[in-house]
């Protein structure tokens, strides 16, 4: 049933596409037919595969760094009232500046290689992860915190150990579903960061290939690159969603898996 649904959606979309090309009679360099794109895909799969590897690496590294920094920032901000007042305005301001606008700067600073793209993806991912995890951390039920602190009066631990244990056993597990939401958003937007970085300046990656193909009117190759990027993005999202669901089986969830 699930595959049938997928099949119908996919063939439907491809059918509409082919129909538009057929009825408008657009030249190949404006809008190629699905078949031409597929042909280009088969013909150039080695080059596509090569560039996809670069982009995938950028996305995965960006995700890892963005999620790590996001988690650390949220923990720091939630632990310290002062940290929140200092950091939140900076965090919000950093999001007000469009990443697209600073992309040339990043390429200037971090060179044409993979680093500038990883930094870009990290920047895009950092904010949703920080904000969603922080929300979860701040939303521990007060009654539960009261009870936990009462229980902690039994031991003789210092402030640091008490705080660590409170986070380890109560606050962090409680915030994990919120963190998971942030990680899903992060996984969906990470490819944007990588590809925008590649557009601005690179010698490898699907974004580079798209720009290259576009300049040479190889629109079928452009579409094939786009398709590859879409497949990577969807596969990553489903993988992340699957892993998060497995990790949080205790969380009540009404959404059936797609």
């Amino acid at each position: 049933m699930r595959f049938l649904r997928w099949f119908i959606t996919l063939t439907g979309l491809l059918g509409i596409w082919a129909f538009i090309v057929w009825i408008t009679d657009l030249p190949k360099f404006i809008l190629p037919t699905p078949l031409q794109v597929f042909g280009s895909f088969l013909e150039r799969y080695e080059i596509l595969f090569h560039h996809a590897q670069t982009t995938l690496l950028e996305i995965v590294l960006g995700l890892t760094l963005g999620i790590t920094f996001g988690i650390l920032s949220a923990l720091m901000i939630s632990m310290h009232r002062g940290a929140r007042q200092w950091f939140m305005p900076v965090l919000i301001a950093s999001q007000a500046v469009p990443v697209f606008a600073i992309a040339p700067l990043l390429v200037l600073w971090f060179d044409y290689g993979i680093t500038s793209k990883v930094v870009m993806a990290t920047l895009i991912i950092y904010f949703p992860v920080t904000v969603s995890f922080l929300d979860g951390l701040n939303r521990t039920p007060p009654a539960l915190l009261d009870l936990a602190r009462l229980m902690q009066q039994q031991g003789k631990a210092g402030w640091l150990m008490k705080t660590w244990r409170l986070y380890r056993y109560i606050r962090v597990p409680h915030a994990l579903p919120s963190l998971a939401s942030g990680m899903r958003v992060a996984t969906a937007v990470a490819p944007i960061g990588a590809v925008v970085g590649e557009w601005v300046g690179s010698s490898s990656g699907l974004g580079y290939l798209m720009l290259h193909a576009n300049g040479r009117m190889q629109t079928d190759l452009l579409f094939a690159s786009l398709l590859t990027l879409t497949v990577i993005a969807i596969a990553l999202f489903y993988l992340m969603d699957f892993l998060l669901r497995r990790a949080l089986v205790w969380q009540p969830d009404q959404t059936p898996p797609l």
């Binding site: 936990a148 902690q152 009066q153 039994q154 031991g155 631990a157 150990m161 244990r165 409170l166 056993y169």
Partner: peptide
């Protein structure tokens, strides 16, 4: 949980 939280 009380033992874990208080380090016992």
């Amino acid at each position: 949980i009380a033992a874990r939280l208080s380090g016992q």
